[in-house]
Simulated scan of single mutants.
Amino acid sequence: MQKQGELDDDDDTVCLGSSFFVDRNYELTTFTFGSHVLNLLCLRSASTDYDLTGQLVWPGAVLLNNYLSQHAEILEGCSVIELGSGVGITGILCSRFCQEVLLTDHNEEVLEIMKKNIELHSSSVLTAEKLEWGNCDHIIQILEKHPKGFDLILGADICFQQSSISHLFDTVKKLLQFNRSKCRFILAYVSRSKIMDTLVVNEAGQHGMQVNEVPGTRTTITNLEGVIFEITLK
């Protein structure tokens, strides 16, 4: 089977590395959420590589940041881990209120731009780690570095690929169980298919979690329906 980056011409094959497809034309872009202004490096449009969607700011991140900027009391003094942080726009906003913010992603290229944005903001509460959903070693390493666990787990527009949802909730469950008494998962969900809508709720239930829609958060953003869910262990 021919793979992306391979061009066959009889016996001649040209193999292009994955870096050939990487777009690094980042632009310093200003985002405003309430009274909070953030400047971040990001792409203006999505990469051709599905795995590099974290290089730009997605509608769900805007939805979550607007919600958090209006309800900053949720964040005050908290320890936060964000899943699928991308360029880091949500975690960076959180750093203005939280005592500790860990941004995570599984892709090395995305982690690189995330770390550049952390450097731009020079915040002592911001750190970044690699976290592949469902990877027990990654989760253990993170919890060893953060033995008190986290007060909040955040995710913005991270439900794209059906095969990843079970791994997502495996990871969320382990993080929730580590600090069961008070930890919760706040998910900014953007609906792009009915199948995914059902899958997210079903997977949460199968992992022993309760999904509650935050009243007043259902809205239209870039012609898509978005909502904030609060997810806890049953």
Score class of each variant (00 low, 15 high):
residue 177 Q to N: 12
residue 69 S to Q: 14
residue 82 E to A: 06
residue 181 S to I: 05
residue 92 I to R: 00
residue 65 N to F: 01
residue 44 R to I: 03
residue 35 S to I: 09
residue 176 L to Q: 05
residue 92 I to L: 07
residue 219 T to S: 11
residue 95 S to M: 09
residue 218 R to K: 15
residue 202 N to Q: 15
residue 204 A to V: 03
residue 12 D to M: 10
residue 207 H to W: 09
residue 135 N to V: 12
residue 62 V to A: 06
residue 190 V to N: 00
residue 230 E to G: 11
residue 125 V to W: 02
residue 64 L to A: 09
residue 47 S to Q: 10
residue 221 I to R: 05
residue 233 L to G: 06
residue 61 A to S: 15
residue 174 K to Q: 15
residue 23 D to C: 07
residue 129 E to V: 09
residue 8 D to R: 13
residue 66 N to E: 15
residue 197 D to I: 06
residue 77 G to A: 11
residue 219 T to E: 11
residue 121 H to I: 11
residue 114 M to A: 09
residue 149 G to Q: 06
residue 223 N to Y: 07
residue 83 L to I: 05
residue 104 T to E: 05
residue 78 C to K: 15
residue 115 K to Y: 02
residue 107 N to A: 10
residue 147 P to L: 10
residue 97 F to C: 13
residue 189 Y to M: 10
residue 34 G to H: 09
residue 212 N to F: 08
residue 224 L to P: 01
residue 24 R to L: 08
residue 138 H to W: 02
residue 13 T to P: 01
residue 172 V to G: 04
residue 145 K to V: 04
residue 125 V to E: 09
residue 127 T to A: 10
residue 27 E to M: 10
residue 200 V to A: 01
residue 225 E to R: 06
residue 128 A to C: 14
residue 51 D to T: 13
residue 77 G to Y: 08
residue 169 F to T: 03
residue 172 V to K: 03
residue 23 D to A: 01
residue 172 V to L: 06
residue 211 V to I: 14
residue 38 L to H: 02
residue 122 S to D: 15
residue 86 G to H: 02
residue 176 L to G: 06
residue 91 G to Q: 04
residue 184 R to T: 10
residue 32 T to L: 06
residue 177 Q to G: 04
residue 107 N to E: 15
residue 57 V to W: 01
residue 148 K to P: 03
residue 136 C to G: 03
residue 115 K to C: 13
residue 38 L to S: 00
residue 32 T to G: 05
residue 72 A to C: 14
residue 36 H to G: 01
residue 177 Q to F: 04
residue 220 T to L: 10
residue 213 E to W: 08
residue 119 E to W: 08
residue 167 H to E: 14
residue 183 C to N: 04
residue 161 Q to D: 15
residue 27 E to C: 10
residue 231 I to N: 01
residue 187 L to M: 11
residue 60 G to D: 06
residue 160 F to K: 05
residue 162 Q to V: 11
residue 97 F to N: 12
residue 39 N to M: 04
residue 180 R to Y: 10
residue 124 S to E: 15
residue 176 L to A: 09
residue 121 H to R: 11
residue 38 L to V: 14
residue 132 E to G: 05
residue 8 D to N: 10
residue 117 N to Y: 03
residue 29 T to A: 04
residue 163 S to D: 14
residue 26 Y to H: 08
residue 208 G to A: 04
residue 54 G to M: 05
residue 67 Y to H: 14
residue 191 S to Y: 02
residue 133 W to M: 07
residue 216 G to T: 08
residue 176 L to I: 07
residue 216 G to Q: 12
residue 105 D to T: 12
residue 24 R to N: 13
residue 69 S to Y: 05
residue 122 S to Q: 12
residue 80 V to Q: 02
residue 30 T to C: 12
